[in-house]
Simulated scan of single mutants.
Amino acid sequence: MAERNITIVEEFILLGFSDLPNLQGFLFGIFLFIYMSILFGNGLIIILTKVSPALQTPMYFFLGNFSFLEICYTSVIVPRMLSDLWTQKRNITLLACATQLCFFVILGCTEFLLLSVMAYDRYVAICRPLYYPIIMNQRVCTQLVTGSWISGIPVMLGQTYQVFSLPFCHSNKLNHFCCDILPLMMVACGNTSVLEILIYGGAVLYIMLPFILIIRSYFKIIATIVKLPSAIGRFKAFSTCSSHLTVVILFYGSAIIGYSRPKSKISGTDKVLSLFYTIVTPMFNPIIYSLRNKDVIDALRKLLPKSFGSANNK
């Protein structure tokens, strides 16, 4: 009887925000605006870190990579979500769902790792300033960024394979706006113990360990800043890492709250929290780094007159 109840699922239906039928057009407009803001804001950061001589430092090298990561991360989710809202066709094939999940978790791991690398960069700059050019040379920076991008691939590929090796027998409807591990596990049947071990192991390795490294770095940064004799020096030292700290709080805060809630079912609150760390925080990142960073503002001021000047000459 149990085997007869297991049906072969060839596609899923992403319910998304279908429980708000009267707001589909409004949500499409909001998410389109957010996505365009992410592309424009993070794209501008990438351009500034490439063309501005004042931003040719390890800190802005990491920031440019982080902005590119944010564009990739949101592009895995938002275009599909916009298509679902516009066409009201919410079905997604098994292969497309697996592909989305795979890129989603890999890029999510990269984000956690890159945030810890950026915290380490600030630690070296503030706590060991004399050795900063030696420790954070171009080769080391490239290796840290490359490691952040590729180190999560094997484990996340394994998790994706384990998820889609499970039979799906409860339903083919996913109460989410994207293919994520939790909603897929809710419609899966069979033994999920191996997958759960992989998930917990991956969370410790790619979420908790980077978080511990970030906390450790900022403990040492704060201890060093407090010992500085000049108030101006303390303010300048803290301002160099305040943007990164703000992003860490927003991203980790929403992700931890979202994944630590009871998971008997996915509610509207869970989906809003997922939206926050998947698309809202990437939208705010360029604003945070621009408003809190004098170097970025100065580079933007220098770039804009050149752009307008070249446009007028044409």
Rank of each mutant, 00 (worst) to 15 (best):
W86Q: 13
M36V: 02
I222Y: 08
F12W: 01
Q24L: 10
I135M: 05
I45V: 13
G158D: 09
S193E: 13
K263Y: 12
A223V: 08
C178N: 12
R139Q: 11
I215K: 13
C127T: 04
R128L: 05
I279K: 06
F177V: 10
G309F: 09
L198H: 08
T278M: 15
I6H: 05
L300E: 09
P210Q: 08
I297P: 03
N172Y: 10
I45Q: 02
R90N: 08
C97S: 11
A119D: 13
S165C: 07
R122N: 07
F33S: 03
L250F: 03
H176Q: 13
C141F: 13
I225D: 05
Y161Q: 06
L14V: 06
S254Q: 14
K89H: 13
F31M: 04
I212A: 05
L55P: 09
I71K: 04
F31K: 03
G202W: 15
L82E: 00
A2Y: 09
Y200P: 04
L303P: 00
F66Y: 01
T224C: 10
I181E: 02
I13H: 13
F66E: 00
S18H: 14
I249G: 00
R122S: 02
I126L: 01
M136H: 11
V226C: 03
C102F: 08
F62M: 11
I279N: 08
G147R: 14
C178A: 10
G201C: 09
I92N: 07
Y161W: 12
I199N: 08
L48I: 03
A119E: 15
K271V: 08
V248C: 07
A255V: 09
L114P: 01
K173Y: 10
F235N: 08
K173E: 03
K271D: 06
L55G: 01
L273D: 01
I134M: 11
I46S: 00
F238M: 06
L182C: 02
L291W: 01
A125Q: 02
S310G: 00
S18M: 14
P262G: 06
K236D: 06
S310V: 12
G190A: 01
T192K: 15
R80C: 00
K302W: 14
V51M: 11
I135N: 08
S264R: 14
N137L: 11
P282T: 03
I207T: 10
Q143K: 12
K236P: 00
L291H: 01
P154Q: 04
S254R: 15
S243R: 08
V9C: 01
L82G: 00
R4A: 04
I45P: 05
H176V: 04
I287V: 05
I30A: 03
K236T: 10
F251M: 06
W149L: 10
V155D: 07
K314W: 15
M59K: 06
I150L: 12
F308R: 15
C102A: 02
R301M: 09
D19T: 14
V105H: 14
T49A: 05
L245Y: 09
Y73L: 02
T142G: 10
N191S: 02
S193H: 15
V194Q: 13
R4H: 09
G201P: 10
L95E: 14
T240R: 10
V117H: 11
